[in-house]
């Protein structure tokens, strides 16, 4: 008897079929706890990052507008943030943008080159992280702001959760600029160990500068090139499962080398195989027309 039960135990575990009704009720309960956002809904407003490859890696098919996004990195991260800001606030182009950080080093003419009207910026110089987080939350809860950017040194988990709730409730996008993470392998691009604790943000990006491609003329600097890594995003486990089911992607692509195009403000993924950049669509069209 004993031998039989021992032998049959693994098989009974393997053939366990859950009751779909029970699972559904559990799922609906969790959905209520999660404020109805267990699954990335297609109806959620998203913006494209300019390249279908990056958009496709996100479960929403683009970057959700009403959400908190973390961007780690150095000056490239500021550039990536400015690119995102431009895309996030394109619809309501007269509404101000709140930017909170310690001190103020943003340069108006440089911001203008990223397609953001500097007149829209309200810069908040704070003396402490507490002030930054408070100002960000005030901005996210106010309906007169197009987007909020904050650059605190540290974010307590509860504060991050509060920010995410505020942006969900009000639909104002929030961007968190974070200092560069310490890498274990020196300047190993894309091999960064995620040191920062998980936060409530929807996505976490890591942007660092990459050596640019010498322009065709051989003189001067080419288009800015960044190593862009999507380190984590909400529903990533879910997305992996779906991908495995669909067998669409053999591996999880979350690292790209992107170029930022000054003319269109688009990001384009640089092809990894040959030493050249994939031109953005509009640019290609323009070049054909010129020929």
């Amino acid at each position: 008897m004993q031998v039989e039960t021992l032998g049959s135990a693994p098989t009974s575990r393997n053939v366990f079929h859950p009751n779909p009704a029970v699972l559904d009720s559990l799922r609906s309960q969790i959905r209520q706890l999660e404020r109805g956002r267990l699954l990335p809904s297609q109806a959620e407003p998203t913006i494209s990052l300019g390249d279908p490859e990056i958009d496709g890696a996100l479960p929403w098919g683009g970057l959700p507008v009403s959400g908190l996004h973390e961007i780690f990195g150095d000056t490239a991260a500021v550039g990536f943030t400015a690119t995102l800001l431009n895309r996030l606030t394109k619809q309501n182009s007269s509404v101000p943008i709140l930017w909170c950080q310690h001190g103020c080093d943003l340069y108006g003419h440089g911001v203008a080159e990223f397609g953001i009207d500097p007149d829209r910026l309200i810069l908040v110089q704070c003396k402490s992280d507490t002030d930054i987080l408070w100002a960000m939350e005030e901005g996210l809860r106010s309906s007169g702001i197009a987007a909020v950017v904050g650059k605190p040194y540290k974010i307590p988990p509860i504060a991050g959760r509060r920010l995410q709730l505020a942006t969900e409730e009000n639909g104002v996008p929030g961007l968190l600029l974070r200092p560069q993470q310490k890498t274990q392998t020196g300047a190993g691009a894309g091999k960064n160990q995620s040191i920062a604790p998980t936060s409530a943000a929807l996505t976490r990006w890591h942007a660092t500068a990459a050596p640019s491609i010498t322009p065709a003329s051989g003189i001067g600097l080419g288009a800015p090139k960044w190593n862009l890594e999507l380190q984590r995003y909400r529903y990533s486990a879910l997305n992996l499962q779906q991908q495995a089911q669909k067998q669409k992607f053999a591996r999880r692509v979350n690292f790209w080398q992107v170029e930022w195009c000054h003319e269109t403000g688009d990001l384009s993924v640089v092809a990894g195989l040959f030493d050249g950049s994939a031109q953005p669509q509009e640019n290609k069209y323009r070049r054909q027309k010129a020929c």
């Binding site: 080093d105 943003l106 340069y107 003419h109 440089g110 203008a112 080159e113 990223f114």
Partner: peptide, 8 residues
């Protein structure tokens, strides 16, 4: 081009 961040 002008820089995005300017040192005071």
């Amino acid at each position: 081009l002008r820089p995005l961040q300017l040192l005071t």
